[in-house]
Design a protein around this nucleic acid. Structure first.
Lengths: 198, 198, 198, 198
DNA sequence: AGGTAATCGAGACGGTACGTCCAGTCTTTGT
DNA sequence: ACAAAGACTGGACGTACCGTCTCGATTACCT
């Protein structure tokens, strides 16, 4: 009983070079101008090797994003005990990421890839945004006695709003982040400053 | 002053056929598998005619979405006086649209197009989602004394959350819509059922 | 009743450029190192255009040879009244052609192409060698009262022997040409110098 | 004195399997569609093993043809004392070989290989056709007082004519073989039936 | 009525990229 | 040390589209 694998071992080095080349191409040209030829050339790899690792353009982009080659979406939400401050800080950190043009391009590429492929979309959800969602939801539940569905809805409202702004090229201004925080914590009737902290 | 132009007049019929063919292709194959050749053939038009009307793939998709050939996002929010019911109804209508596979595909295609092109993104925002945003924000302001920024943030949280769910292939269940409504109206501390109506 | 052909007319100029590039590549690299990519690039044409004219490598080579782009096999046999001299002259002319390295490469390429494709072989026969065969056979019949089959066999013995020598890289020396002439005219029993002329 | 080599001895069995696989591939697909990958797989060998034995495609084909794995060209000419009958019999045997589709394919493949590679051509000549040539020439000299050059020319006329017919896909009919025999024995002026036998 | 000009379907053009296949080399494990 | 297995770079394959450029054939306006 041996699971020994014959033949040359697949080069992890090459795999990483491919992902790095992909990240650079994505940042430079966007999703639909990606060229496997160019990526392979930039990575010093044969095209076949690229296809051996990733069967399609979307899978390549997915892996690129998943492996943290450009989507450093933090999935840890600060917890100082003051929910308003923590939430606002997390949004600010997220916004700072999106302000980097290269990161923004990468996330938009992920969006395009997810829009085109069910598979990529699910992987994107499960391995990238779900983690942030969970962290957010947990922090929210710690701050107020809401059920899980409600916490998730709030978390998705936050993430969704940020991605939407990115998509339509509207900058996430500090005022917008403030308002978003207030809305999620107090709803539209809350006054913003009077919400108790956890 | 006459703006009469010499030569044969451009056929509006053909233009509509092109947009319809584009809509069908988008729904069937998604954004990045669009083929101008196929669209022209399906519309019974020459390729040059397509390019005469729309100089690029993104322009074509933008026009397609903008002219209501595929993004029937309602921009009128019901106003029965009960904000919770109105908001929930609007979300339900939106969710019903997204439940249609063809419509979902079209919106995802628009998302991809917006992700790839600044121009399309801005036109998408200005002519499609901004209208819904405004309608939503106005209805929210009528229900509670919030400033404009806050109302806009709330509206974008709603739209963003819905588009995010669509993107990551998570169905917008009635419970989710309820929770989303509650969150935007009352924040995470609201009890949901006790929020006063406008 | 119109046989009007719609669309842009196919460029004869491009077609000739493709054939010329093919001829050059054949002479330089031989048949199986032909690259359609290189030919297209050298001709300043798109690959699709090459394939539009010629569906395969062998068809391309066939057309190249057929259109006289390198196979100037003379199909006119001199007729001075002296059959021995005429035959020997024709063989000498043929041998001179084969002595050109470029022409030799081209003919070897035709041989390879004919070996690989039935279609090319038949076209090669019908449009290239059959003409020479007929001319030779006719000249032979004018010189001696032989039936057609016999004349054709003699003609093919001549052509076959020359191509065979080319194939196996044996030079066609004057002595060889003399002997070949003698053999075909008198058989192995003839003395060579005593055969009457027509 | 020992020529023992260290390590595992190279398997003659494998070598033969490679040649047999090559022969089959040649017969099935022709020379330029040969694939070392396919040959190795069919022979149950690794690609490296193929390259260890034969450094190139042409060397492989040459060895295949030379070792009698596909070119069973008889190099013994019958000698009943009657040259016409002997020659005709030899041609008939040759023609029977060529009538076999698989054998014909193999010989055409050899032709293609020889056309493409000087090395293969010379080996093809020296080890395959030269033997037949010599046997033919010797038999001819035994039948008539011709010098060597003349006998060789006659032999090459016979072989060349047969290969030419094969190449251009013209069947070698009995009438053709008769005429070819007559031509070589008597030239175009001989009456065919009156040529004395040796 | 007869030019003149823009548009139409059609489709060829030079290019770029695709995804596959193969050549020839290299590396790993098994014998 | 050789063998099988198979990954590696590199490059050609034949196809599909891109966006541009002719074509002949319609329309429409403008003398």
């Amino acid at each position: 009983m041996s699971d020994s694998r014959r033949g040359r071992t697949r080069s992890e080095t090459t795999r990483r070079a491919i992902l790095e080349a992909t990240r650079d191409e994505l940042a430079a040209n966007g999703y639909d101008k990606l060229s496997i030829d160019r990526i392979a050339a930039a990575a010093g790899a044969g095209k076949q090797t690229v296809y051996r690792w990733y069967p399609s353009k979307s899978a390549l982009v997915a892996e690129c994003v998943l492996d943290g080659y450009g989507f450093p979406l933090t999935n840890s939400v600060p917890d100082t005990g003051v929910i308003r401050r923590d939430l606002r800080d997390w949004l600010g950190t997220f916004a700072d990421l999106l302000a980097h043009p290269q990161t923004a391009a990468l996330i938009r590429a992920s969006t395009a890839a997810a829009a085109e492929s069910d598979d990529v979309a699910v992987r994107f959800y499960k391995h990238v945004t779900a983690a942030a969602e969970d962290a957010l939801a947990e922090r929210l539940r710690a701050a107020a006695p809401v059920d899980d569905t409600r916490a998730v809805a709030a978390a998705e409202a936050l993430i969704g709003a940020m991605l939407y702004r990115l998509l339509v090229r509207q900058p996430a201004t500090p005022q917008f982040l403030d308002s978003l925080t207030d809305t999620v914590l107090s709803g539209i009737q809350g006054t913003g400053g009077t919400v108790p902290t956890s």
